[in-house]
Write a protein that binds this DNA or RNA. Structure first.
Length: 415
DNA sequence: AATCGTTACAACCGCGAGCCT
DNA sequence: CAGGCTCGCGGTTGTAACGAT
């Protein structure tokens, strides 16, 4: 609602921080935590507004910030996440440990964006610029679906952030009991203050994108009364957000259990042990409110995959926009997924998603150096225009990642 | 050495969401 | 429920550092 006066107040200093100011701010937060940012400057003896103090702390003084050059892997992650999430720097930052959203934003604007533009790629759409001339064919549909995926992931991140805040609130009393010398005093919503318990989590779509199919599906798990499925193939035990190596070794299985200590978004099958189930609800382990809120997210038009049906022979995902039916084989293999999604319209979200997954199932060198341009031979070679469009799409993304990963002398001329 | 242009990054600004009273 | 307050986010600006001429 109303805006705070903040820096409008006269007599408050602006501009670069001096070492003395930094020291004051550090000393105060070390001892008391930041508490109310608005009240902090007066207490700390600073002639700054609270907002300025918060920014200085979160973007510069916080001890858990990694500074310096971005690694190739970080760059790749930023590009991929930006393709999925757009300018949602805070969301991107949650997947880059010890990097601030501001730093990532700056790095994007000064480095990565320019690189993409020099490569003839629109940094906004992540598509070749001349691609804009294409009509409403499969590619544009794929792009739309990609955006769709992004919206899903965005919504999930929002829910995670909310969950983190709630967890933070719940644990605040516990934290207060900890010695005041503890040098954390994090902002409740600062990326690094989020409950990073255990391995840093990877963006689900990103993982899946890189070919993460983690766990064979079996009837037992499906038929269980409360089986939960992570639609995006979430792998909870991944060490690094961008560590995809190794998952390519087993690229042909879809994850059926996204349940982990930090998992937040689950599809829960409320069926009986016979395996028959209808009207399965989307379920969030925290509360359904988060899901309900998705429809009101900033993007405003999230899909509603609100039905998952199961019977003995198949499992189906249904939304207002997309439908997918998969056989209830012992496993969902790349082959079965492909064959069972071919009948779906080219604009189908899941097909695109699957295609992306499958397209990388054989070239697991995307995330690490040494990769070669994938020709997606063998089972990846589909037929028809839709397949060609998908192929172009894959090649485009591969080219981005390979260029970023392998800035060979010839490539570097483009940068 | 001086000037100008470019780059990189810290910091600011304004908006909107959510919380509190 | 309404309105005020706080905070976080994303866009933008300011400026120091660097490089080219």
């Amino acid at each position: 609602m109303g805006r705070s006066p903040c820096c409008d107040k006269v007599g408050l200093k602006k501009g670069p921080w001096t070492p003395e100011e930094d020291q004051k701010l550090l000393a105060y937060i070390e001892e008391h935590g930041h508490g109310s940012w608005r009240a902090l400057p007066a207490k700390a003896g600073l002639q700054r507004c609270g907002k300025s103090c918060r920014l200085r702390w979160t973007n510069y003084l916080r001890p858990d910030i990694k500074r310096g050059k971005f690694t190739l892997q970080e760059e790749q992650t930023i590009i991929q996440l930006h393709a999925l999430l757009g300018n949602r720097w805070s969301a991107i930052a949650t997947h880059l440990p010890k990097r601030t959203d501001n730093e990532i934003k700056n790095y994007w604007n000064t480095h990565l964006k320019k690189r993409l533009m020099k490569m003839g790629i629109d940094p906004v759409t992540h598509k070749p610029k001349n691609d804009a001339l294409l009509s409403n064919d499969g590619q544009s549909k794929n792009a739309a679906n990609l955006s769709h995926m992004a919206q899903w992931e965005s919504a999930r991140l929002e829910a995670e952030a909310r969950l983190a805040r709630q967890s933070k609130l719940r644990s605040s009393s516990f934290q207060n009991s900890i010695t005041s010398q503890e040098f954390t005093a994090p902002s409740p919503s600062s990326p690094l203050s989020k409950p990073v318990v255990g391995p840093v989590r990877c963006l689900d779509v990103l993982k899946a994108w890189n070919g993460v199919w983690t766990k064979p599906m079996n009837e037992e798990s499906i038929a269980s009364a409360s089986a939960a499925i992570s639609v995006t193939g979430l792998a909870r035990d991944l060490e690094s957000p961008t560590s995809t190596l190794g998952y390519f070794e087993n690229p042909h299985h879809i994850s059926t259990s996204g349940i982990g200590e930090n998992s937040t978004v689950l599809y829960e099958f409320v069926g009986n042990s016979s395996g028959s189930s209808e009207g399965v609800i989307m379920h969030n382990e925290e509360s359904e409110e988060d899901w309900k809120g998705f429809g009101n997210s900033s993007t405003g038009h999230l899909p509603e995959y609100n039905k998952v049906g199961i019977n003995e022979n198949s499992i189906s995902f249904t939304s207002g926009l997309h439908d997918l039916t998969l056989p209830m084989d012992s496993t969902w293999t790349a082959e079965s997924l492909r064959s069972n999604t071919e009948h779906i319209s080219p604009g189908n979200f899941v097909e695109t998603f699957t295609d992306l997954l499958l397209s990388h199932s054989g070239d697991g060198d995307l995330s690490e150096g040494g990769g070669t341009e994938s020709d997606n031979g063998g089972e990846g070679s589909g037929s028809g225009n839709a397949s060609e469009n998908c192929e172009d799409n894959k090649n485009y993304w591969n080219s981005i990642f390979n260029l970023v990963n392998n800035p060979s002398p010839s490539d570097s001329a483009m940068f």
